[in-house]
């Protein structure tokens, strides 16, 4: 097992601080560490899995099985600008599917994007359908990276593409 990946001091100290939140069992820090890793490196690589496992005294499989279970973790990079459009009923009634198709066209993204990001050719944008984002009264809703937007019309979507592009 090789863990040659270099992480910054700053990153490691964030990791160490996070582990202190789980005085009873370090293993509990798996999900938070995966989040930190993905924020830092954009996706969770094999090296990431091994690094986290070593940090928490776990087998890599204990960490890897989380990556494959939890939809938010990725094994490949997504676009620099990530759209996550709510797919579920209330948003669908309010035009979520139309919004999704509009954005896909606008960002020239091929591919399906049903659960799991579809990335534009140059890697700038990615789009994916996600399930209910708990804002069903103001659909259709989406997230751009970590930011959240409600009642997103096609015009508003165009503005967002400009704003983040």
């Amino acid at each position: 097992m090789s863990c040659e990946v270099k992480v910054s001091k700053e990153f490691e100290s964030k990791v160490d601080e996070t582990i202190t939140h789980y005085p009873v069992s370090k293993r509990s820090a798996s999900l938070p560490l995966l989040h930190l890793w993905q924020e830092e490196f954009g996706y969770v690589s094999n090296q990431g899995v091994e690094w986290i496992a070593a940090k928490l005294d776990l087998q890599p499989i204990n960490v890897y099985e989380l990556v494959t279970f939890y939809p938010m973790f990725r094994e490949q990079p997504a676009g620099k600008i990530q759209f996550r459009v709510c797919r579920t009923l209330s948003c669908a009634l309010a035009g979520g599917y139309e919004l999704f198709d509009h954005l896909k066209k606008n960002c020239k993204i091929e591919g399906d994007g049903h659960h799991g990001p579809a990335v534009s050719p140059e890697g700038k944008y990615s789009i994916e359908f996600v399930e209910c984002l708990a804002s069903c009264g103001t659909g259709p809703v989406l997230m751009v990276n970590d930011d959240f937007y409600e009642q997103v019309s096609n015009d508003k979507a165009n503005e967002l593409v400009k704003k983040y592009g």
Binding site: H21, S25, R27, S28, L31, L34, N62, L66, E131
Partner: peptide, 27 residues
């Protein structure tokens, strides 16, 4: 009190799934 983030799985709302998840396992 510590804030612990899930990662996109609905089943973490079920309380025993949530506990497994908080223990660092699949929910």
């Amino acid at each position: 009190i510590y804030i612990h983030r899930g990662a996109g799985a609905y089943i973490c709302g079920e309380e025993t799934g949530l506990i497994e998840s908080l223990e660092g396992k699949r929910a």
